[in-house]
Every structure is written in structure tokens, then in C-alpha cells.
Design a protein around this nucleic acid. Structure first.
Lengths: 125, 125
DNA sequence: ATTCGCGGCGTACACTTGTCATTGAAGGAG
DNA sequence: CTCCTTCAATGACAAGTGTACGCCGCGAAT
């Protein structure tokens, strides 16, 4: 089993942005971060470097710019991260987390419909 | 707004155990931890001490044993923690997290029914 | 009394994380 | 050519985190 170190909170966000961009240099990632969480350019650079040393992304030098590319799929990272959260905060039960989400964060009708859909598929199996 | 420092992953689990016990000394918390995550007694003691200094629990000396008691409700901690996760890993959208949970972690029929129930209440409003 | 076992309390210590400052090369503006 | 902007590459550093160890005192067992 390939044991990768886990990602810190800040690194998770950088990873997410990189997934959404596909591939990108430091500047692009920096600019794509949500306003309320602006970091210094070099901070983002450090995160990306660490992401690489932890094995989550790869990079190549393109001209004078280093381009980073995700190496591990979102799915995988999300699975690991969520599993750990559920483990620690909900004793391994995912239902309470879902209930929390439903109660705490309002969903649009469309979203509710979508969830119903998914539930149907689940029980169909 | 009372700004409390956030809890680390390990501290979250200790907090969860303490909520489930209501009040407890170090030994009780230590013994209530899941097998796969046993820590040294004094490690648990340290976590509890830190939880207290971060303002999440209070304690009193009862005889020669220090009893810890949660000060912040699970609800609150869960809200903050989940919100941060959703923010960083899902750009603030909770639906993708729900979808992930549904796809990745199988639910029993009873649980599915319970969720349907909740969805109904949501859309009723 | 002496010795155990348990818990409290203080302290430690390496590793991780968040956050930059610096230094230096490379290209474009003038 | 010279200056300015833009990155890359490093180095740094304080705070946070995981994980104890050691000494001390108390009450129970010998």
C-alpha cells in the first residue's frame, strides 16, 4: 500500500484548486484561490512544493515556469479525508454526518430532488 | 465572537469520546478510545489538558482524580469542522460531499429510509 | 513501614504546518 | 544595455501537534 502522508487543511485547498484547473503554475493557483483565503505567492509555492514531496502532484518545468499537475485523483483524497473525519468525529458512522449536513446547510429543491434520486438508486441495489 | 483555536485531528476524537461519556477522567477516556487508536495514558492526558486550554472543556479535581467535562456542544464543533472541510475540499458546496458519502459508504435500508424522511421535512418547509 | 500501581503535573522533543524573506536568473520596456 | 517584473529555489521560523517521560504523592496490599 502506497502510504502517502496526509494533507494539511491548507494543502487540501490547494489540491482542490489544482484539480479544478487541471494543470497550473503557481500564479494560476494563487489567483484561483477564494478571496477570503489569500496567501502570499510564495506561500502557495511552498504548498505546491510540499504537495509534490508528499506525492500528490507532479511537476515539470515548462520554459521558466513550473507547471504542477495532480497525480492522485480527487476521489481518493476525498475518500481518505472524509473517512478520517467520520472516524474521529462520528465514530465511523456516516449517517450522523449526513443528518448534520441536511439540518445545517439548506439545500435547494433541485438538490433535494437529486439526493432523492440517489437514494432511489441505492435502495434499488 | 469567542474565537477558539481549532482542534487537531487527534483532539477531535478525544472530544467526541468525552461527549459520549458526558464527564470523565483520563482513564475512562483512554479506555473508551477505539482499539486501533490506542495512545499512552499520558498522551490522552495531554490532549485533555490542551482541550481545556483551548476552551473546549472544563475540569475539576474530584478527590485525586481530575474530571473533564465538555464545555462546547458537539453541534458547534461539528458545524465548524465540517464547514471548514466543505470549504476547503468542496469549495463550500455541501451537495458533493453528500453525494460522495452516498456513493462511497453503503447505508442500510433503515438509514436510507431515515434520510428520505429528512428530505421530506426539508422540502416541506 | 515498605512497596505497588495509579493519576497529576510539568517538561520535552521531533515533526508538521502556516507563513514568509531572500536571492538570483530570465525576459520585456525603454 | 539597464531597470523592472516575474518566477524559481531555498532557507527560515514560530506555533501547533503527536507522543511521551519522569518525578511526586496517595491509598491499598504485603
Amino acid at each position: 500500500m502506497t502510504e502517502r502522508p496526509t494533507l494539511s487543511r491548507a494543502e487540501l485547498e490547494i489540491a482542490r484548486v489544482l484539480w479544478s484547473l487541471g494543470e497550473a503554475g503557481v500564479r494560476a493557483v494563487h489567483d484561483a484561490l477564494p478571496d477570503r483565503r489569500q496567501h502570499d505567492f510564495t506561500t502557495v509555492q511552498t504548498y505546491l512544493r510540499r504537495l509534490e514531496s508528499k506525492g500528490y502532484v507532479s511537476s515539470r518545468l515548462e520554459g521558466r515556469v513550473r507547471i504542477y499537475k495532480p497525480k492522485i485523483k480527487p476521489r481518493t483524497v476525498i475518500r481518505d479525508t472524509v473517512e478520517e473525519l467520520v472516524d474521529r468525529l462520528f465514530a465511523g458512522e456516516s449517517l450522523p454526518l449526513m443528518k448534520h449536513l441536511l439540518e445545517e446547510r439548506p439545500l435547494s429543491d433541485a438538490e433535494i430532488a437529486e439526493l432523492r434520486q440517489l437514494l432511489d438508486e441505492q435502495s434499488a441495489k
